[in-house]
Design a protein around this nucleic acid. Sequence first.
DNA 1: GCCTGTGAAACCCTTCACAGCA
DNA 2: TGCTGTGAAGGGTTTCACAGGC
Lengths: 247, 247
Amino acid sequence: MTSRQNRTRDRAERGIPEATVARLPVYLRALHALQDRGVATVSSEELAAAAGVNSAKLRKDLSHLGSYGTRGVGYEVEYLVYQISRELGLTQDWVVAIIGVGNLGRALAGYGGFASRGFRVAGLLDADESVIGQEISGMTVEHIDRLEEIIAERGVSIVVIATPAAAAQTVCDRVVAAGVTSVLNFAPVVLTVPEGVDVRKVDLSIELQILAFHEQRKAGGPDGYDPMAGGVSGNGRASGYVEAVEA
Amino acid sequence: MTSRQNRTRDRAERGIPEATVARLPVYLRALHALQDRGVATVSSEELAAAAGVNSAKLRKDLSHLGSYGTRGVGYEVEYLVYQISRELGLTQDWVVAIIGVGNLGRALAGYGGFASRGFRVAGLLDADESVIGQEISGMTVEHIDRLEEIIAERGVSIVVIATPAAAAQTVCDRVVAAGVTSVLNFAPVVLTVPEGVDVRKVDLSIELQILAFHEQRKAGGPDGYDPMAGGVSGNGRASGYVEAVEA
DNA sequence: GCCTGTGAAACCCTTCACAGCA
DNA sequence: TGCTGTGAAGGGTTTCACAGGC
């Protein structure tokens, strides 16, 4: 490896695989749990078990950050926590605003996992007059009209969209126009953004649908009993689906 | 392709790639939106745009289900909706129970995207006496003691865990012992389950951490300004991280 | 001896490009 | 002609298995 590319910088080639990045937070959580239990060093086998992956994968992943382990011994927990935190950018604070304080927005506002990872919620915004001014998790809900102002003044760099589906794209456009380039979207729509803006999506119902797919498969055991064969046409086509408002 | 494997069953080999399964719900949503707008047929190009993928990927994905398109024309929206719904197992109803009615559990209980996809929430359970008996989204919160009874009597096949991290594994064990083999976990822990049980995980803070990683990279432009180089040691190691209770 | 770090193989997923059919 | 369906190429990810250092 490292065939072409200047090899002045040794360890972490600029460019950690996406799959690895997605697992680093999981390792980090497992490491924090070990830290709480007073564990000082851990082997790839143990840490992998705690994170729910196999040890080869864990070692490959960590090797992308550098050589932070000791052969014959394992990894020093505290040191690894620091290295992963730094790599993920968690040694600095990130200012977050949450748009939409329905049930989901409230849940997010009160979610302890944010603050403990260096994410500071600096604004809760909504369009509904009846919730403006309400106190939620120690913060006062502000009017969406002040979106641009709040982003600029408080240095918001990540925005969480928890609005109804219909409002999400409009809110996203305004947020992007205000200079934000990282968006976490909980609304069940595909957001269109310009080049250079990152959108990640969490969709509650997609996960359930994937589970349903696998659950359906289990019924038929191996060697293909065709699930629903026959009964299907009696059921009529897509039986009056209605796209509800969701979120 | 299809080198070894009996070729009696032509179209859908039992075994759709996971990556494809994960995108089918997205296509389904886009198709529902088209249906609402009265669109009868759609090309792979248009549907792909609506779903946020490229058209080659969409066609490959759909080809795993069968040949449901018409060359030179496109796909009939209603027919495709039905085929994808059937493949995902959404032509039948799934009975769901939600464990833990904190902020997140409440949000999930009220989430319209479940009911509209054939997921029927048949139970809201919690351990906290002070919420038992409360009405949430038209349902009465019941005591976790009745978990096994409720699963059996109401035919629950998918359980959503929205408890605090500390309670999740215990709840999961009981749920699995009661015969449930599909679990959607919102608690920030890795759940250990026996072979044959599917667990999917939604982690709110992991997504933010992945965004932070990319956001951090943007600061340094191309040709590697090392983010945080130098300032780091002055900051000291992992600056007193405390694993908060979360969720 | 033991456990990390990593080439190499295997596997999966995406993208390309075009044959084939309405 | 236009768009689907799909072999083939390409890229990324996982797993294997072992070399290498403590």
